[in-house]
Write a protein that binds this DNA or RNA. Sequence first.
DNA 1: AATACTTTGTGAATACATTCACAAAGTATA
DNA 2: TATACTTTGTGAATGTATTCACAAAGTATT
Lengths: 217, 217
Amino acid sequence: MRYHRIPAETVRRLPVYLNALLLSLQQGKSISSSELSAIVGINPLQIRKDFSYFGGFGTRGVGYNIEKLIKKIKKILKLDSHHQAVLVGAGNLGSAVLAYPGFAAYGFQIAAAYDSDPAKIGKTINNITIEDAENIINLKKKNIKIGIIAVPRQQSQAIAQSLVNAGVTGILNFSPCRLAVPKRVKVITINIATDLARLPFYMPADKKIGFALNKRA
Amino acid sequence: MRYHRIPAETVRRLPVYLNALLLSLQQGKSISSSELSAIVGINPLQIRKDFSYFGGFGTRGVGYNIEKLIKKIKKILKLDSHHQAVLVGAGNLGSAVLAYPGFAAYGFQIAAAYDSDPAKIGKTINNITIEDAENIINLKKKNIKIGIIAVPRQQSQAIAQSLVNAGVTGILNFSPCRLAVPKRVKVITINIATDLARLPFYMPADKKIGFALNKRA
DNA sequence: AATACTTTGTGAATACATTCACAAAGTATA
DNA sequence: TATACTTTGTGAATGTATTCACAAAGTATT
C-alpha cells in the first residue's frame, strides 16, 4: 500500500465513497465501480483510479467487496479508530452541529461544547452541557484532537489559538475567515455564504420577455 | 471583458475575495494583491491571475480600487442584483441557515421557509413563518430561483424535484446525497460530515511513547 | 527629467487531475 | 476446456490549474 502522493481530490472523494458504501452494505456483498458511480455521481474510471492509489483491492470481473473496501477506506482516512471532538460556539449553527446526526457514521463524537456567552454556559443540548470557553485546556489529556469552531468571525482566531494550545491538531472552521495556526495543524473551512455566492454565476440568465416575444413574432 | 473559460477554481475564490474586500472598504481606497493575500491566505500571483481573466482592472504601482473591484466581482458573480431564496427543512440545520447572518453581504435574502412536519408548520423563526412543503409551487412568479435544502437524506430528492418544478434553477444542498436534476439546474452540495471526515487524514499521527523511549535509549 | 521602486498583467513552464486505450484477471456459458 | 463477457488496473495522453519569469505601467524621489 503506497500512501504517498495521494491527490488531494482523491482524499476529498474518499469520504463520499465511504458514505455510499455504508448505505450499500445491506444491498449485497460486492459492488462494481459503475454501481458505486450511480450512487455518488462520479465517473467509474475516476473511482477505480482513486482506489488504485492504495493498491488494487478489487477483483476483476466482480467488483469490490463492500466490507473490505469500507475497512480499507476507513484505515486510509484514519477513521478506523473513533475520534472525539469539541465544539466551540453554541449559537444557531453550533447547536445544529451538536445535533447533526451524520458524524457518527464516520466515528466522530462530540465530547464537549464551549461558549463564552454566560447565558449559554450551563445549558444542555443533546446531552452535552455547554462549558465556559475559558476552560478549553488540556484536551490532549482527554485524547481530543479535533475542534469545531462555530463562533462569530471576530472571536474565531482567538478560539483557534486556545484550541491549538489545548492540543488540537485538526480544526473544522465555520467562521468566514482564515485562521492562522502552526503548520502541523490542519484547518478545513466550511463557508456557507461563499458556497451560496457562486450559485448565481452558474444559473441561467433570465430570459427577457420582450426578446421572447420578438422571436415568436 | 471575456467571460468565457473561467476556471472553476477562480469562481470558487471570487466570493472569498469579495468577502475580504467588503471588510477592507473602511481601511482605504485601494488594495494590492499582496495585501489582499494577507487577508485571504491566497498567493498574490493567483489573485492577479484570477482577476486577469476578466480583463486587467488594477492600476500598476498602486493596486486595485476597492469599490470598483467589489462592483466588478459582484457583476461577474451576478450578485449585483439581490437574490431571493427559499429554505426547505426547518430542523436544527435549517433553522441555523435561516438565522445565518452571512448571506446578506452577498445580497441574498431568505423569502420563505417550508417543512413537512405539522409540528413545525406555522412556527415563526427570524420573522419567517414555516409553510407546508406541499405549497412549494410557482416560485418563479415571486422571482425566486434559489432553493436551500436542509431535509433528511430520504426526502431530499423529492424536495429537489418540487423546487425544480416550482421554477428554481439553483440549489444549495445540505443533504448528504446526490440530487438528480435537469442540466440547466445547478446544485452545490455542502456535506459537513464528509468535510470533517478527511481531517484525520491530514492530522499528524500519535507518537507512540514506547518508540520515543527507544529512540532516547 | 532621470532613476529607483512598486505593482499589475501575461505567455510559457510546470504541476496536478482526469480521461483514454488497452492489458490483465476474473466469471459465466456452451 | 474454450469462448464470450465483465470488470479492475495502469501507463500514456489530454485537460486544467498554478507558478515562473519578465515586460509594462504606474508612483516616488533625487
